[in-house]
């Protein structure tokens, strides 16, 4: 091919691509005419390749835009959702603990009074009690019975409130379900992205960072499948005793 011919046809090919990009049908046809007039199959191949690349990058761009959308909108939203889970569960735990701490002294007081009365009652049954002591005992019983009623009512109310405080489970469960679907979508998109990029980066190895073996990780979720993780207190005790504890 003559050098000037080649330069002309390359110009035509570039013009064709930009015509395609701007949806200019007339210009596209004109440039195609110029190209076909040359009957150079090599150039046709080149155009074909450029068109395919254009198509691919358009298709990939759609994927990218979903990822951009996920990053800009869904991720911050998810952070808010997870923060909601933290605050809701914390609130429920605090409420429940409050009701428990209110209830424990009530049961202690009932038990203490019952113990006292039981001892006096025993002495009365053994005929070890004089009239004054018996009058005191009657008075004790008289104040004890309404106390039992009042405390039982309060304990009942506290237990009901504790039950209601467990309502968080429904709300946080729903939010976590939404987060799981989002994570699945991000995962699918990332896998696609890795596939596309993967062809060019096959030789690039995955990051093999050395992990600190005692780094705190919080609760282990799939402990059964990990030999390095102990499943319960008994296994921990066994390990410690094997170390001479």
């Amino acid at each position: 091919m003559e050098a000037t011919d080649k330069a002309l046809q390359l110009d035509a090919a570039r013009a064709l691509v930009s015509a395609l990009e701007s949806d200019d049908i007339e210009e596209t046809q004109q440039q195609l005419m110029i190209l076909t007039s040359g009957h150079e199959s090599e150039l046709f191949n080149e155009v074909g390749k450029l068109t395919r690349e254009l198509h691919d990058s358009m298709a990939n761009f759609q994927l990218d835009s979903r990822l951009v959308d996920l990053t800009n909108n869904d991720m911050p939203n998810t952070r808010d959702r997870l923060n909601y889970v933290i605050s809701t569960t914390e609130e429920a735990a605090t409420k429940t603990l409050g009701f428990i701490e209110d209830t424990l002294p009530l049961t202690s007081e009932l038990k203490q009074s019952a113990d006292d009365i039981e001892q006096s009652w025993h002495r009365f049954r053994m005929k070890e009690m004089n009239a004054d002591e018996f009058r005191a005992l009657s008075k004790e019983i008289e104040t004890y019975l309404p106390l039992v009623k009042a405390h039982s009512d309060q304990i009942h109310a506290n237990l009901s409130d504790m039950m209601l405080a467990q309502g968080f489970q429904d709300l946080t469960g729903q939010v976590i379900q939404q987060v799981i679907s989002l994570v699945e979508e991000v995962e699918t998109n990332l896998v696609e992205l890795v596939k596309i990029a993967g062809n060019r980066n096959e030789d690039r190895q995955t990051n093999n960072n050395v992990v600190d073996p005692i780094k705190a990780e919080g609760p282990q979720i799939n402990a059964e499948n990990n030999d390095n993780v102990l499943n319960n207190q008994d296994e921990v005790d066994d390990l410690l005793s094997s170390l001479g504890f």
Binding site: P213, N228, V229
Partner: peptide, 23 residues
């Protein structure tokens, strides 16, 4: 603690922990 990796418990033992309760 909720930390239950073998290395962690061994490290705690070597560091002189008196007892280890798992959450």
């Amino acid at each position: 603690t909720a930390e239950t990796k073998r290395e962690q418990i061994m490290t705690a033992a070597q560091a002189g922990v008196s007892g280890y309760v798992v959450k």
